[in-house]
Design a protein around this nucleic acid. Structure first.
Lengths: 212, 212
DNA sequence: TAGATTGTTAATCGATTAACAATC
DNA sequence: TAGATTGTTAATCGATTAACAATC
């Protein structure tokens, strides 16, 4: 019986930043923080922060502020960071390897079980202790392992094909690095990382400065 | 004498998607497109598309639509893709290598001149034809080459230090992959790629589905 | 010309900010 | 208690959508 009236995506996209700063505060041993102090750190207004947090319940205490540890934990729960998710990667190039190697994801509860590639020279290699398997075996693999997240780091030409395999295999979410919009049913979550777009935005602003 | 009343960042962030679909249309040899057809492709409303484009001028023709080639070129100009920018990367790990290897950036006018790392075992290696140099030599390097963009693919602990070096060396823009908010003067453009945040958002929605 | 579709104004919707009563 | 700061309502601002006159 969640009251959840669908929190807006604008708010959701701010949560990881709150969580990141709370992690830092926690590491520094800071116990409490006010919306104003969090505003100074994040650059969001204090009012906005209070509004955002109140979408999920009253985590603060009037006259005091927010308990860093509590708020950190609650945001972690909201973001599902208290859960463990297994992931696989298709595309064992540098980007796939970079993700497989990145320790930060494991710390947040995301485990990379294996990489897949179609290049025979890649198959059998190990990235950390993660093996590169033949992409042809991927359906079997998913059928025999608990895999919630499918990561796509292939060239754009293969991305939709891989997405299709993921979807048919019953994967729940796709983390897509290929510069294409994947066609997918509504019950599959797709989150895109648009490296091209990001670079183009940088270019836009560089160009703006040049013209001044 | 630009009329530019500062186009909102919300609009700017949609431009790369328009550009991407126009590239595809161009490759397919399609000559004209209406805002409605572009809406079908991008998922933005036709009205929004017309509003967005009219921030930069009237690129369409009443009763006809938009000429694909013209609109593609104009959006490219707005995004600065007609310019050539040189970039260097600090952090020659997998992520740095992935970026150095990615052909798509070069096609868009971004040239990676070299990689920098502090690990002696990396220094001297070549990624494609891009050499890995000692990070200690970076200031000299920038002083002797035309470098507009500094890319940061180091661990988060080193990111601000590298940013500082970039800023002091007169770099114009920073493309930052480290999960920290860089302190920087207003005349430096910083664009962040937040891999952690993106994964957390995916996790949020996975978690939402689980709770239904 | 008639039909189509833009460019643009006005209406609506949603997100941010301001304000302040509640309360710790 | 007095001071501080939240939670929440109301006001403002900005972005999206709707509508339609302009015009190709």
């Amino acid at each position: 019986m969640e009251k959840d009236l669908q929190v807006s995506i604008t708010v959701i996209r701010r949560l990881p930043k709150y969580h990141r700063y709370l992690t830092e505060l926690l590491e520094k041993g800071i116990r409490k923080i006010s919306s104003q102090e969090l505003s100074n750190l994040t650059g969001f207004t204090a009012s906005q922060i209070r509004q955002d947090l109140n979408n999920f319940g009253g985590f603060g205490q009037q006259g005091y502020g927010y308990n860093v540890e509590d708020l950190h934990r609650e945001l972690g729960k909201i973001l599902g960071l208290d859960k463990k998710y297994n992931a696989i990667i298709v595309g064992a190039g540098n980007l796939g390897q970079a993700i497989a190697n990145y320790k930060g994801f494991e710390d947040a509860g995301f485990k990379i079980l294996s990489l897949f590639d179609r290049n025979p020279r890649m198959i059998g290699l190990k990235i950390r202790d993660i093996e590169v398997l033949d992409v042809e075996t991927i359906k079997d693999y998913i059928a025999n392992h608990k895999v919630e997240i499918g990561i796509i780091t292939t060239p754009k030409e293969s991305a939709q094909i891989i997405a299709q395999i993921y979807i048919e295999s019953g994967i729940k979410g796709i983390w897509n690095f290929a510069p294409v919009d994947l066609v997918h049913p509504d019950n599959i979550v797709v989150e895109n990382v648009r490296l091209n777009d990001s670079l183009f935005i940088l270019s836009y602003f560089l160009n703006q400065f040049d013209n001044k």
